[in-house]
Design a protein around this nucleic acid. Sequence first.
DNA 1: GATAAAATTGAAAATGATTTTCAATATCAG
DNA 2: CTGATATTGAAAATCATTTTCAATTTTATC
Lengths: 143, 143
Amino acid sequence: MGNEHILLDEFLQSRNRKRSRQREEILNLFLSSRRHVTVLELYREVRKQNPHIGFVTVYRTLKLLCESGLCRELKLEDGIARYEKQVGHEHHDHLVCTKCGRVVEVVDNTIELHQERLFKKYGFYPQRHRMELYGVCKGCKKG
Amino acid sequence: MGNEHILLDEFLQSRNRKRSRQREEILNLFLSSRRHVTVLELYREVRKQNPHIGFVTVYRTLKLLCESGLCRELKLEDGIARYEKQVGHEHHDHLVCTKCGRVVEVVDNTIELHQERLFKKYGFYPQRHRMELYGVCKGCKKG
DNA sequence: GATAAAATTGAAAATGATTTTCAATATCAG
DNA sequence: CTGATATTGAAAATCATTTTCAATTTTATC
């Protein structure tokens, strides 16, 4: 059993919630799916393996994974929720190709620093931020 | 007639589209409404003045104003479209209070510069970006 | 000014992602 | 094992937004 399963179990325990076969399977497929997966994409994977698991359960499990800290929800311009693994992944922002949809994860420490300064400047207690850069990637510029 | 009405008319002309009483009224109320107005908020204003103007017309007119460059659509974490005047407003990002919903417009040239660098670094042609900072404002920290 | 072609309007219905409902089923502490 | 409690899944509800379409308005042209 992978580390993530242990973390999920601990989370469930701590909240008086229960394990289930479905959650195990969905977590497994989530972990082996591509980054920035949508609910529908993951559901299709799940259904291949176990057609008895419902769409709503995938939805709910992804939300649960976000609560547990294993997963992070990402909403780009199209407004559709995408989910990315959190464990073993540092904070990062996203660079998105508006032609092919490719998503690159980026970090810039100077930007991070200046974001903190903006919070301070306006007297805000910082919680989180979102930064997305939209452009056309190398491949799509040529094509 | 304000400058914005002239700009809208020119835009409509250039696209073989037509002026209308509704568009005039909606533009007026949009211009005098608070920044970051939602469709519903603006619709309520519109209805006060002219109950015959429909909800969908307000929707469509705001989209039209965005096309014309008079207006910019903004989607924060809640996913509800908000609209802000573009004319006479420089580019800016948003600092949002997660308690009271207050929105502050911010600019940081260093951040802008480093965003450009990120585009360059990954070989992207830059189109636009979105940056939102979420925290708790001074007033809400005390309360 | 009249007119015809084309765009706009508004009410209702459709859409599409997400959430809720609820009865049946599964989990787990004791 | 058992009862209390959580989860499941199908269907229905939600909610912002978009589309449809017949009636109306606008505007270019006569």
